[in-house]
Simulated assay, not measured.
Amino acid sequence: MNLSDLRIFVSAARRPSLGAAALEMHLTPSAVSKALKRLEDSLGTPLFDRSAKQLVLNTSGQLLLDRAATLLALADQARSDIMGEKATLDCRLGGPAILLWRQGKVLAGALRDYPQASLRMLAMFEEEALAALARGDIDAALVTGEVLDGRGEHWSPEWQATPLGSVTLHLVAGRSHPLVAQLSNGDDGLLHASSAEVLQHDFACPSRSLFCGAQRGSRSDGWRDDALPRKIRYWSDDLQLLLGFVKSGDALAYLPEFALEDQELLRIQVDDCAFECREQVALVWNRNQAGGWLQRLAQILESNVN
């Protein structure tokens, strides 16, 4: 049994067809089929039920799949630890797009010492990211404290949660928004408005949580519409499209503070708003299978917490 064939087996076991596995592994279907046959010959038993039109794992195949992620992870860990900064790394990080946006620059900086490394940031909601981590499809997941508190069905006692601080949401407007021209800066350098002034204007909002993906309607961005009901004119679950409505001056939005790094956006402090939405953030990774580079990455991310 060799590692290359084992990787192909894992792909074939999780994909609907040989063709899909071949596409993922950048091989021909014939090469995938031969790799599976070599693996079965080395183990002395079939791994798939070939009576159906699609490959279906049998009992032996399922047993191997359950062990394969650990075997491959340990092999990758050993190789990267031995080679150090010369290692060819494929860092796969999954999580909500809004959290990947937040951590992107720090992640890129943390991997500069590894010139042969590549960084894959895969947008997926939190539970999907934890499921991918459990399968071995990603190396680490970005999640919020709400998910950590609930743990969920995919949680493993082998996982480590590295705290990455919190995300606070603020009311944000584009520089060309008509409300901006009406407001003046306070001593704190912020634009100040009353809720009555703010609620005269249209909002843009996702229809589902940008973190967990749950359909929450007007509650999806954390704004308390029960206390301060808004007129939501624009709905978009695409973060960039939502930002477009804000930058154009067509709408206000309730967004994380790091959105304000964009020079086209301004924060508006609502003086009589009694609530604040804040989410704790963490990096989740398998401490038993992590190579030195991933442990170092977690340390760098944690040290960058304000």
Rank of each mutant, 00 (worst) to 15 (best):
residue 135 R to W: 13
residue 73 A to V: 04
residue 120 R to G: 13
residue 105 K to Y: 13
residue 239 L to F: 12
residue 144 T to G: 11
residue 2 N to P: 14
residue 36 L to E: 07
residue 40 E to R: 01
residue 32 V to C: 08
residue 221 D to N: 15
residue 224 R to W: 08
residue 245 F to C: 03
residue 244 G to Q: 09
residue 84 G to A: 06
residue 24 E to A: 10
residue 298 A to S: 02
residue 247 K to C: 09
residue 69 A to I: 05
residue 168 T to W: 07
residue 238 D to K: 02
residue 166 S to F: 12
residue 113 D to K: 03
residue 244 G to I: 05
residue 102 R to P: 10
residue 233 R to F: 04
residue 296 R to N: 11
residue 127 E to Q: 14
residue 189 G to H: 07
residue 153 E to W: 10
residue 46 P to E: 08
residue 8 I to H: 11
residue 18 L to Y: 14
residue 192 H to G: 11
residue 5 D to P: 11
residue 294 L to C: 01
residue 295 Q to T: 00
residue 244 G to V: 06
residue 276 E to W: 01
residue 152 G to E: 07
residue 237 D to H: 05
residue 12 A to K: 04
residue 195 S to L: 05
residue 56 V to N: 13
residue 285 W to G: 00
residue 257 E to D: 14
residue 5 D to E: 15
residue 228 L to I: 02
residue 5 D to V: 09
residue 291 G to P: 00
residue 171 L to H: 04
residue 170 H to V: 09
residue 34 K to F: 14
residue 163 P to Y: 07
residue 206 P to Y: 07
residue 179 L to D: 04
residue 223 W to N: 03
residue 149 D to C: 01
residue 265 L to K: 00
residue 22 A to Q: 08
residue 101 W to P: 04
residue 104 G to S: 15
residue 28 T to H: 13
residue 37 K to E: 15
residue 261 E to I: 03
residue 81 D to W: 05
residue 270 V to L: 03
residue 223 W to T: 03
residue 46 P to D: 08
residue 138 I to H: 05
residue 292 G to V: 00
residue 132 A to S: 15
residue 176 S to A: 12
residue 187 D to T: 04
residue 273 C to T: 00
residue 130 L to H: 02
residue 264 E to Q: 10
residue 57 L to Y: 06
residue 115 P to D: 14
residue 199 L to F: 11
residue 247 K to L: 06
residue 284 V to S: 02
residue 208 R to N: 08
residue 161 A to L: 04
residue 159 W to P: 02
residue 208 R to E: 12
residue 167 V to K: 00
residue 152 G to Q: 06
residue 300 I to C: 06
residue 56 V to T: 13
residue 27 L to H: 09
residue 65 L to S: 03
residue 284 V to H: 01
residue 274 A to K: 01
residue 141 A to M: 02
residue 4 S to F: 13
residue 28 T to N: 09
residue 157 P to F: 07
residue 31 A to D: 09
residue 160 Q to F: 07
residue 44 G to Y: 10
residue 244 G to W: 08
residue 45 T to L: 07
residue 121 M to D: 11
residue 60 S to I: 04
residue 57 L to Q: 07
residue 106 V to G: 08
residue 125 F to Y: 15
residue 182 Q to P: 12
residue 168 T to Q: 12
residue 296 R to F: 07
residue 130 L to E: 04
residue 31 A to N: 10
residue 243 L to T: 05
residue 260 L to M: 02
residue 154 H to V: 06
residue 219 R to Q: 14
residue 210 L to N: 06
residue 264 E to W: 02
residue 108 A to M: 13
residue 44 G to Q: 10
residue 168 T to M: 08
residue 42 S to A: 12
